[in-house]
């Protein structure tokens, strides 16, 4: 039990996908203008990441390994992710048309969020079990979502600040993300304990 908890903390905080592994920066910058959008994006990504991590694990263990098809890994994983994203898009559109409109192109682009494929591949690389894969996917997504929402809060504040013209918009966003990443380095070395 404790090791699962540690795995969750380690993936969500210590090895945060965005701030430590620098994966998924495109949606991180793209959908963090408003907190509400960020929350929606966080939930959609969490769903996709967890589900695709589990499905990818299943395909890896029951299809690719038994039939010695490891060379098809990337291809099949992308197929899985694309299907899950398609499903999510339909569901979001049905559940919240407003969110569907505000997320716009970034919703289908979860497919190309490298964090999603990255987590699925890392699961294979680390030889995770089913539960571990699920936690790894969920933990990464949790870390991604929390940071996305926090960052959206910061950007809403910055939108009202008197940022100099040279830094206004994306530049100050990157500076802020950099400083946030600096702060996250405080957790370094925690996995050991």
């Amino acid at each position: 039990m404790q090791e699962y908890l540690l795995l969750l903390v380690a993936t969500a905080v210590v090895n945060n996908v965005v701030l430590v592994k620098f994966l998924g920066l495109c949606p991180f910058m793209g959908t963090s203008n408003k907190v509400d959008t960020a929350i929606g994006m966080g939930m959609a990504t969490t769903f996709v990441l967890t589900l695709s991590a589990v499905l990818a694990w299943a395909i890896e263990s029951f299809l690719l390994v038994p039939f010695e098809l490891a060379f098809l890994r990337t291809l099949t994983f992308i197929l899985v992710i694309a299907a899950v994203v398609q499903f999510t898009e339909m569901a979001v559109r049905r559940i919240s048309p407003v969110l569907y409109q505000t997320l716009g192109i970034f919703l289908p682009l979860i497919t190309t969020n490298c964090a999603v494929l990255g987590v699925a591949l890392l699961n294979v690389q680390e030889g995770h079990t089913f539960v571990e894969s699920m936690l790894y996917g969920f933990g990464s997504a949790l870390g991604f979502s929390v940071i996305l929402v926090v960052f959206a809060g910061l950007r809403e504040r910055l939108a009202l600040a008197e940022v100099p013209a040279a830094f206004a918009g994306a530049p100050i966003g990157f500076v802020t993300a950099g400083l946030l990443s600096l702060a996250f380095m405080g957790f370094a070395g925690m996995s050991a304990g």
Binding site: F151, L154, A183, M185, G189, M190, G193
Partner: peptide, 25 residues
Amino acid sequence: VIRTWAGYPEGMAFAVLLMNAATPL
């Protein structure tokens, strides 16, 4: 948390920055 389990002996500066980030929320 940082003092106890992470690599750095002192975590106040990191903790302040992290909570600064959470302040708008």
